[in-house]
Amino acid sequence: MVLSQLLIYLFPDPSGSHFHWNAIGVLVSAALVGITLSKHRYHPYLTEVYYVWQLKQALNKITRKMRKIEAAAQQGNADAMLALQYSYSGSRLLWQLDDNTIIMDELAVKQTELNNLAEKHNVSLNVDEYNEQLLKQF
Score class of each variant (00 low, 15 high):
residue 76 G to K: 04
residue 55 L to C: 01
residue 23 A to Q: 15
residue 9 Y to M: 09
residue 120 K to S: 00
residue 100 N to M: 01
residue 99 D to V: 09
residue 61 K to G: 05
residue 85 Q to M: 14
residue 36 T to A: 15
residue 57 Q to R: 04
residue 38 S to N: 13
residue 91 S to G: 13
residue 136 K to I: 13
residue 51 Y to T: 06
residue 83 A to M: 01
residue 127 V to T: 14
residue 104 M to D: 09
residue 102 I to H: 15
residue 47 T to G: 04
residue 124 S to E: 14
residue 28 V to H: 00
residue 48 E to A: 06
residue 95 W to Q: 12
residue 34 G to P: 06
residue 86 Y to T: 02
residue 12 P to H: 04
residue 66 M to G: 11
residue 9 Y to N: 08
residue 104 M to T: 08
residue 10 L to T: 11
residue 32 L to Q: 09
residue 36 T to G: 11
residue 63 T to I: 13
residue 88 Y to S: 02
residue 25 G to I: 01
residue 72 A to K: 03
residue 37 L to Y: 06
residue 31 A to S: 15
residue 80 A to W: 01
residue 129 E to T: 13
residue 116 N to A: 09
residue 103 I to T: 12
residue 4 S to C: 07
residue 13 D to E: 13
residue 133 Q to E: 11
residue 121 H to Q: 03
residue 84 L to T: 03
residue 115 N to R: 04
residue 21 W to F: 09
residue 130 Y to P: 01
residue 10 L to D: 09
residue 80 A to Q: 05
residue 116 N to D: 12
residue 98 D to S: 07
residue 48 E to G: 08
residue 112 T to R: 13
residue 85 Q to E: 13
residue 122 N to Q: 10
residue 81 M to N: 05
residue 126 N to S: 06
residue 97 L to P: 03
residue 104 M to Q: 09
residue 127 V to G: 05
residue 86 Y to P: 03
residue 81 M to R: 07
residue 136 K to Q: 15
residue 129 E to S: 15
residue 95 W to N: 15
residue 99 D to P: 02
residue 78 A to G: 02
residue 49 V to T: 13
residue 109 V to E: 10
residue 33 V to Y: 01
residue 87 S to M: 07
residue 47 T to W: 11
residue 84 L to K: 06
residue 82 L to M: 09
residue 67 R to C: 02
residue 84 L to H: 01
residue 35 I to L: 08
residue 128 D to M: 06
residue 61 K to N: 03
residue 98 D to P: 07
residue 115 N to K: 12
residue 30 A to T: 14
residue 87 S to H: 09
residue 48 E to W: 05
residue 84 L to F: 02
residue 23 A to I: 12
residue 72 A to N: 03
residue 66 M to K: 14
residue 37 L to P: 06
residue 40 H to K: 14
residue 30 A to I: 11
residue 28 V to L: 14
residue 29 S to D: 03
residue 49 V to N: 10
residue 35 I to A: 08
residue 21 W to C: 14
residue 114 L to E: 08
residue 45 Y to C: 00
residue 22 N to D: 04
residue 2 V to N: 11
residue 20 H to V: 10
residue 134 L to T: 03
residue 114 L to K: 01
residue 12 P to G: 02
residue 52 V to Y: 05
residue 46 L to R: 00
residue 41 R to F: 15
residue 1 M to L: 13
residue 19 F to D: 02
residue 108 A to V: 11
residue 136 K to N: 11
residue 79 D to R: 09
residue 108 A to C: 02
residue 138 F to D: 00
residue 115 N to E: 14
residue 48 E to R: 05
residue 81 M to C: 06
residue 66 M to R: 11
residue 111 Q to W: 04
